[in-house]
Design a binder for these strands. Sequence first.
DNA 1: CTTCCCTGTTTTGCATTCATTTTGATGTAA
DNA 2: TTACATCAAAATGAATGCAAAACAGGGAAG
Lengths: 239, 239
Amino acid sequence: MLRPVGTETETPESAATLHDLVVGQLRNILLEGEFAAGRRIPEAQLCARFGISRTPLREALKVMAAEGLVTLRPNRGAVVTPIDVTAIGPIFELKGALEGLIGALAALRADDAAMTALEQHHHALGEALARRDQNAYTRLNYAFHQLLAQASGNALLAQNYEALQQKIWRYRFAVNEFDERLATSYQEHEHIMIALRARARLDLAERLQEHNRLTGEAMIRTFAEIAEQKPRGKKEKSA
Amino acid sequence: MLRPVGTETETPESAATLHDLVVGQLRNILLEGEFAAGRRIPEAQLCARFGISRTPLREALKVMAAEGLVTLRPNRGAVVTPIDVTAIGPIFELKGALEGLIGALAALRADDAAMTALEQHHHALGEALARRDQNAYTRLNYAFHQLLAQASGNALLAQNYEALQQKIWRYRFAVNEFDERLATSYQEHEHIMIALRARARLDLAERLQEHNRLTGEAMIRTFAEIAEQKPRGKKEKSA
DNA sequence: CTTCCCTGTTTTGCATTCATTTTGATGTAA
DNA sequence: TTACATCAAAATGAATGCAAAACAGGGAAG
């Protein structure tokens, strides 16, 4: 079974306190989209669900707010940070810079263990594509890129990279919407693996940046199509 | 008077709650180095100082822990995250990637207001250099680069960039330790400004990355010298 | 003299309580 | 009917209380 995303930063001892446990669970809940974006987060309900009091939950909410996943409105409760299409561009723009660095470093530093894990994930991606299993593909893709980021040997880089991946994860319903992009994406991954195996750092950096750019553009395009299809009842006079 | 660093993310309404106020104040205290790195953070003492109860302070500590400025040891209190020389390399490595993107974008997107502010800061940097005012120079330098990051037009980039600047800020006692680097740094800034005025995006990106690399190397070198000078009483048998 | 263990104190983690603000309903007047 | 004012109910923000864990000191055993 596929592991949920967003669990990479949990170290065993960090779960020693209730607070950290709640942060992890809350993050998963938000990333899995259980609460719709923009929706108010029911403090009392979550307390009952986790079987805890409001104190640790509120602490977790503050942390999630610092991460940007939730938005705190003073005296008016917390809401899941609304989906903002205009935020996608800057995210991918920034992620591109990180992809470049990841490629340059991973080509030099990826050790045997990392290479093995990456090959395995790449293989699994191919199988998911063959099955047309979009859900599995998306999650494996997340894990693959996270592994690559870790293979860069720069933990801070990997951490920042995952933060961006998590932001994008919330918009995933709008990516790989069409099988076409799924297949294209896998072809890009093939080239990424070729560059990685060859330890071609400049090529790997470029491949990753290009892959990032195309993914971002596909996502933005999909959103534009969505916005085009259902602007029902809203300002059609200018159309 | 020079404004303390780390206040860029404070928006007026964010101070509406006690929690946000405490986060800001605590961040300043930590960034200004009032508590030595590695030192335990006295919860009760800070409560008394801020005139608040433990709840909002602990919430703030959790947020600072998520940012990495403090380290929470379960049941054993919070400590200022210790200075770790080995962390400097990865920080500058990552910041380099951001500098490149900032240069490429700022060259294209910096508007008149941003250009004016940058010119002013650059001028003030020259004056600080002439006065050999290292404290002013360091702070102006922080502000200059933050302005440039904002001139990129990518708020997420600017935010991530500042997070890195804050991390580095804690190590500032080991940078520009010698007037030599101060003057060299300013010369690099001269070239940065030339590229910026010319809107030479590739050059600006390269200048910034080079500036970042040299600053990082100078900092690491200074740390090596410090470690060389005062290993008093500790394992001198190998020397 | 060192080491271990025991106990009292302090500190931490979380639950609970209290005060303030918001929200929503109801009633009244224009 | 609509708009506004008033007030009760609910939710939020922060303080306090309490149990458990860590810490510090002293004394006994080796």
